[in-house]
Amino acid sequence: MLPASGQQPGEQVLLLEELPQLPDVGISVPENDFLVALKWYSRGDYEAAWRTLEPLAQEGDARSQWLLGTLYQHGLGLAPSAQDAAIWYERAAQQGVAEAQEALAFLYATGSGLSRNIPRAFEWYEKAARQGNPQAQFALAFLLAATLENDDVSEEVHSWYRQAAEQGHLLAQYNLATLYINEPQWRNETEAARWYESAARQGYCRAQYNLALLYSQGLGIERSEERALYWYERAAQQGEPAAMNNLGAIYANGFYGVEKDLVKAYVYFHRAAAAAHERARINRNALLEQLESEALLDAQRILQQHDHVSCR
């Protein structure tokens, strides 16, 4: 019998900065002026957006300052400049724009355009988080957890993850679920299953794999081989190595009511091994001894048709 992967859900992860969604804040200039810039931004004409935003930002409009900082940070329509982004984010942040506060905190946390300053990152993340910004809530929880002096996850970490998760933040949902599985003082398998499923339905491959594990063991959710198989397959489609290894074991042994299929098992093991999954490499090599030459050729043909994807 070829073994599946270990059955412990994954570690917490940190989301990198992405292009922001537009804030809902007050403005101090005629609305049409900002909406013109917003129109260009939405259409991808960032140079035109910059030409419209720059005078508005100079006049002190907070939203324009924030969006101008976004153009500079990501090099949209002009040369990227973290230093200029920091200047405009700071001005908008001081006027209370939560998205600018979160973006400024990110620059302090990563040392982009500013000297790295974790206390300042905390300060701005907290300001944005208290305004309900889910990315700031997530990042604040993550940084707080990383700076704990002991292994106990605080109520504050749990609260910020929870607030971001309830707003649909994918990785907050994942980390909250992982907290409910891994942290003894917060152990709650039902809540873990709930939040893994929320993240899984948003397409997050690691959540899909962990949800499959819970379904396979009946932890916090009614045991269902059918649902476990479904989520293993969804995760494997996105290149999740442990999910591919477990599917290999399922098809190699005929588990979960599936027909035994050594070719399919080899394909899953090989793809997982190519993603540096050590157990899958061992399983693939063991399976080689059972495959006839024609079956191995079939497996190789299938592998040639697969694009390499990686679960992130």
Rank of each mutant, 00 (worst) to 15 (best):
S42R: 14
A37R: 03
Q131K: 12
A243P: 02
V36M: 11
A48C: 07
Q163W: 08
L143E: 06
M244L: 15
G257S: 02
E259D: 14
Q167T: 07
P134S: 12
V267A: 02
E240K: 01
Y256M: 14
Y266A: 04
H270A: 12
D45C: 12
G220Q: 03
A200G: 09
E156N: 08
E189G: 01
A299C: 10
Q65K: 07
D261N: 15
Y46C: 07
L114A: 02
G257V: 08
Q290H: 12
K260P: 09
G248E: 03
L213N: 06
Q94M: 09
N150R: 08
R281I: 01
E233C: 00
A139S: 09
A242F: 09
L291T: 04
S159K: 11
A85R: 00
L53A: 03
W195I: 02
G239R: 01
A199V: 07
G44I: 02
W124H: 06
N246C: 09
A273E: 04
D84N: 13
G218L: 02
A129E: 05
G10T: 04
S81E: 06
Y46H: 03
L297S: 12
G248H: 00
L107T: 03
P241A: 02
A199D: 01
I27C: 08
L262T: 06
H74T: 04
E99V: 08
G257Y: 07
E233P: 04
A82T: 04
D298K: 13
L219F: 10
L148I: 12
L14Y: 14
Y256T: 04
A57Y: 01
E149R: 12
A164N: 06
A4N: 05
R234G: 00
Y180I: 05
N182E: 14
E59P: 05
Y125T: 02
R284N: 04
S64P: 05
H158W: 12
K127P: 05
L213F: 05
H74Y: 14
L247I: 10
G203L: 10
Y268A: 02
A4C: 10
W66N: 11
G218D: 07
I27T: 12
Q305F: 10
R201H: 13
A79C: 06
F269I: 04
N210I: 02
Q58I: 02
A100D: 08
R162K: 13
